[in-house]
Nucleic acid binder design. Structure first.
Lengths: 185, 185
DNA sequence: TCGCTCATGTAATGGGTTACATGATTCA
DNA sequence: TGAATCATGTAACCCATTACATGAGCGA
């Protein structure tokens, strides 16, 4: 799937692996992300399959850049993927919920500590989506004006991140209260 | 991680791989799941590491059952995991959001069709969490009364599933309206 | 008779993380 | 002086999915 994230961004403009990581972090980071090592490996396999090409740009004082460009075959592959609807909803795994599910034996205090820690994390995350993410969209449009209309959908999914975090915070607050009041001893 | 889901259920009562899949589906299915093939493979490695033991129960007319039982080492490992707090929140990947993010070029109608399809899916899912999941908890307690208190936390995470689906539905509805009214042509 | 439930497993492959390896420039 | 940014990649490993393989009993 990372394949399509990379082809998607390369359909806007040519980029290096390092730059792709940046675009991913600021725009899809909310629901899709990858480590640099995986990005480099995936770009290599995309090139082997003729979906992108690359050339090296020498630089002074810093490492050479390998810039990737999408090919016609790459565009065709991307558009075929975009045109194929997703027919089922995926279950998202959540390690915190799994741990909490079995946590009754650890006791009330340990559970409350864990819940409060995550309340804090998600509050920070929500703030980030509200501020940084919107700025990041602006920056992207300034760098590549052709994608102006694409940002309509970008903002739809950015709103998802906001709603998701707000819901998670809500759930944590409700759960903290429930545990405080009704945890069975 | 599946390791701990299995140890968690086995800490309640001895079970076969097949039964474990069932418990997972009805109780943690909402935020954690696994295929049978992975469950069998993981049980095998748990046994190799001395965290569970197994014995075969012959049956007539149907395949023999291999019943797994948690060991003291298994309980120790489980409780160590439970006592270790999670310090970071994980980003959940969402293929639908990734596709929508790049979907501007596919046009308004294709996007609306995709969104409406998922609205339907999530409405069904929400109904399932509200009815079946609560029944499943009751059944579990009847089979293994010792876990009565554990179900307090079970219900906390069940509520998460409900809130998550409600949020997703909300987002889909808002997004459908936005796309209908303001999609840039 | 067709599909579901019960019941167990192996093998191949894919997707992703962690660790390793290198190194100059810039800013606090 | 130490951390962050820019910049690229390989190798080992782990987790998970898909496909393969088998087969009786039961209810619609």
């Amino acid at each position: 799937m990372l394949k399509y994230a990379l082809l998607g961004f390369l359909s806007y403009t040519s980029l290096t692996g390092y730059e792709l990581e940046n675009w991913i972090n600021v725009s899809t980071g909310n629901f899709w992300h990858a480590k640099l090592s995986q990005i480099y490996a995936t770009l290599k396999s995309l090139e082997e399959n003729g979906l992108v090409t690359s050339h090296v740009e020498p630089q002074e004082g810093r490492p050479d850049r390998r810039v990737y460009t999408i090919t016609d075959a790459g565009r065709a592959d991307l558009h075929e993927w975009l045109a194929t609807p997703i027919l089922d909803s995926e279950v998202k795994k959540d390690g915190l919920l799994l741990k909490l599910f079995f946590s009754y034996p650890t006791g009330k205090d340990a559970i409350l500590t864990q819940l409060r820690l995550h309340l804090d994390l998600h509050r920070r995350q929500l703030a980030r989506y509200r501020h940084d993410a919107i700025d990041a969209l602006q920056d992207a449009v300034e760098r590549v004006p052709a994608i102006q209309k694409d940002t309509f959908m970008w903002d739809m999914v950015r709103r998802y991140g906001e709603m998701y975090e707000a819901m998670y915070i809500d759930w944590l607050q409700q759960t903290i209260e429930e545990v405080q009041k009704h945890f069975p001893d």
